[in-house]
């Protein structure tokens, strides 16, 4: 599973960072960033999916 962020959509709410601080961080451009290249270990997939759904701006995408 791989995550990506459509940065122009990110509204800076920070839900992704609250739920998965090991996967997301806030960038200097007012937008969330991925930590690493977005590849998610199998053990973390559910958590990553929850973070993606929680994003109110629907800025986080998931590739299976």
């Amino acid at each position: 599973m791989k995550l990506f962020i459509e940065v122009e959509k990110c509204c800076g709410f920070g839900e992704c960072i609250a739920l998965a601080p090991d996967l997301f961080r806030m960038g200097d451009d007012n937008r969330a960033q991925l930590i690493g290249d977005g590849t998610v270990d199998q053990a973390d997939e559910e958590r990553a999916g929850t973070a993606a759904f929680a994003c109110p701006a629907e800025a986080i995408g998931v590739e299976e």
Partner: peptide, 12 residues
Amino acid sequence: LNAPSRMLVLRR
């Protein structure tokens, strides 16, 4: 204004 990381902490 242009301070998203600060605002994140304040929301919490």
